[in-house]
């Protein structure tokens, strides 16, 4: 995966300064699960609102000024541009502050950063999406992106799971994809409750049952590290080569632009050279510290 071409993105810099956030306004808040919220937002600056573009898989640095900033992927699709979305799990200082905001509040945004899913490479192929928990966020941007350009792609398989029915994110999307005849959808939970009538079982097991063919196919996998670790071998068993598996990585980040140092995997910076990688690119590191 190549480093993102940012030449056309420099014009988004606020006052020419890459660290300066643009002010954006929260327009809608959706409770996904008890700890996860999706925020719809738009830039305050009208010109930027119109000009701003990004690609599925890219992320931004979001600020609550006075508290700090953190990276979240843009979870909406670039094909649907009347607003932008991100989805944040409450885990610490900044995410708690975000969850305290209400509609109309101002946040800071700088980006888009990082590379993106390789649409050219995906075109004309069968796509297998494998997602777990909140990591559906980056996949979701791509899924809507390909659905909105449905002719360009062959079969679409989505395998998505969460710990429990209450932990499933984007239920409205899951319903829509379930109903969409051009998409085949398998939703699973590790453990159901009384009202759950769907599949039970871990994502890698369900993937093995669904058994998508590797012929002319690409698997796009996003999830917690434990899910990723168990999913790669299953894909291997199904016949997917490391070049046919795409994933996004997450590291602790600050600058988002390859300067502050902390997100490195060997010589690569996840913020600058990723977050989208093929399994072929990272398989040597996965075995050791990463």
């Amino acid at each position: 995966m190549a480093i993102a071409d940012i030449s056309d993105r420099r014009r988004y810099l606020a006052q020419g300064n890459v660290y300066l956030p643009h002010i954006a306004i929260i327009e809608k808040i959706i409770d996904e699960t008890p700890g996860v919220r999706t925020f719809h937002f738009n830039f305050k600056d009208e010109k930027l609102r119109e000009e701003f573009t990004f690609d599925s898989g890219q992320f931004g640095e979001y600020s609550v000024l006075g508290i700090g900033e953190a990276p979240f992927c843009i979870s909406s699709s670039p094909t649907r541009r009347d607003h932008l979305e991100f989805t944040a799990q409450r885990v610490g200082r900044l995410t708690n502050a975000l969850h305290r905001l209400s509609v109309g509040a101002e946040i800071g945004f700088r980006g888009p950063y990082g590379n993106s899913f390789p649409l050219d490479f995906l075109e004309g192929k069968n796509l297998v999406f494998v997602g777990g928990g909140i990591a559906l966020a980056p996949l979701r941007s791509l899924i809507w992106n390909v659905i909105d350009n449905r002719d360009k792609y062959k079969n679409i398989d989505i395998i998505y799971g969460a710990r429990s029915p209450a932990d499933l994110c984007f239920k409205y999307d899951l319903d829509a994809w379930d109903k969409d005849k051009s998409v085949s959808m398998a939703t699973t939970v590790d453990k159901g409750d009384e009202s759950w009538t769907g599949r039970e079982g871990f994502v890698p097991q369900v993937l093995e049952q669904v058994a998508p063919s590797p012929d002319n196919a690409v698997a796009i996998v996003c999830g917690p590290p434990i899910m990723i670790r168990f999913t790669f071998p299953v894909l291997g068993k199904l016949g997917f080569t490391p070049e046919q598996i795409i994933t996004t990585l997450e590291k602790r980040m600050k600058c988002g632009i390859g300067k502050c140092g902390r997100c490195n995997i060997g010589n690569l910076y996840v913020c600058r050279d990723g977050p989208v990688f093929t399994y072929a690119q990272i398989k040597n590191f996965i075995s050791s510290e990463y």
Binding site: Y19, L65, G66, K254, R262
Partner: peptide
């Protein structure tokens, strides 16, 4: 070495964002 951290400081309604040396 150039690693840095980024943090905010807020006093009442005025704040600053600053960076500071950090280390791997």
């Amino acid at each position: 070495c150039y690693c840095f951290d980024i943090n905010d400081e807020l006093i009442k309604d005025r704040g600053t964002r600053f960076r500071s040396w950090d280390s791997c």
